[in-house]
Design a protein around this nucleic acid. Sequence first.
RNA 1: GGAGAGAUGGCAGAGUGGUCGAAUGCGGCGGUCUUGAAAACCGUUGUCCGGGCGACUGGACCAGGGGUUCGAAUCCCUUUCUCUCCGCCA
Length: 423
Amino acid sequence: MLTLKLIQENPELVVEKLTKKNFDAREIMKEITETDKRRRETQHRLDMLQAEMNTLAKEIGILFKSGQKEKAEENKVRTITLKDDIQQLGNELNELEKSLNDKLVILPNIPHESVPAGKSAHDNITIRTGGPAARKAGETLPHWEFTQKTGIIDFETGVKLTGAGFPVYKGKGARLQSGLIRFFLDEAVNAGFTEIMPPLMVNAESAFATGQLPDKDGQMYHATEDNLYLIPTAEVPLTNIYRDMVLAEEELPVKITGYTPCFRREAGSYGKDVRGLNRLHQFDKVEIVCITHPDKSYAMLEEMVNHVAGLLDKLELTWRVVKLCGGDMSFTSALTYDFEVYSSAQDKWLEVSSVSNFETFQSNRLKLRFRDPETKKPRMAHTLNGSALALPRIVAALIENHQHNGEFILPEALHAYTGFKSI
RNA sequence: GGAGAGAUGGCAGAGUGGUCGAAUGCGGCGGUCUUGAAAACCGUUGUCCGGGCGACUGGACCAGGGGUUCGAAUCCCUUUCUCUCCGCCA
């Protein structure tokens, strides 16, 4: 959520910057400005009435104490209309505030100035590449064939147990999963992140604070009986740890990591893009989350990008980093880098990580602040997060790029984690 | 799941209808003293929303929501959470 202050002080700038996200904010901004103006006026009138009421009540109290009952009763009569007015204005104010909030919540985050204009993924800009040269397309089996042949991932049984998109990992397939998770966690801890094991379900308040609600309602599994949501990413519980907090400046930057399964309904996506591991309802991911001083968030973003690049290098995958264009960025992000790895078997780039700076967009909803030592006042911190990494497509890419004569040879970095070198 | 008790400022803890944003202690910050520090003493000490160029000023906030009352931290209802006991259980 954008801060009201920014909107009040510079509405034209907000409109202009949001055009990069292909979001026409003119109409909504006009409404916000008007609603805000009315809200302030109403607040002011209400405050005055309440002040009057307070004095009156105080006077009545004094009159009663000094035994002037008749005079007190006289004053009481005057409070009746005041009370009505206060009630009515209070309702008006509530409605204005609600209406204002409903409008504010619709506005996406303002993109960083370096974000390229564009409509779709085609307009993203590749800024870095790494890893070995891509293999020739078609040399290897796609992962869904390889995993079926070797029996390490059983999609059919997943369907039997739960439904499509819930695979069962078996034997070396399961060992590969748990090994990768520990590998990613170790790497994150070595890079200074503190490991957290959060709950896998969150309440609506948490889902709202990180922006999943109301924007992505319907993408999360919802346990209606208890009104809890299965987390679509560890970002939700990890970031919400710091909801409603004022941190000391020395506590920054916060660097935390966590492994969780992630649950996504993925309503409406079918077809060949969802084949095999490409899109699942439940998948494993190690997430990294940072909270920084506003001046240091972009340096942190680079650090996170380097961390992910290091992981992909150790896994000996062919990767590239793209800077997302305005049209392809998420609602909440100010700047996002996507990592993609090349799969020769599928002959395409698979998105395996997304690293973003949200600046104060999440903090504002989270009420996540730090105390500025200069002013001694709370000030909003910046939040960032990234996948480091999401497993399924990494597994797909590993299998599809590291086959030699029908055998999947694991990258050396994983040997200690899996206890075997090939499948 | 059943019975009972409770939720107050950064923390501990008073306050059971009026002048209470809230005693007191601890902590924090500033100062006096000191070569420096400690101790002692003095002062200060939340957040949010309005109004004002500003000094300053109005309002809200005692877990959340609703109610009673001229007036609620205090009374009533309700939700959530915590604790104790019982039951169940990995």
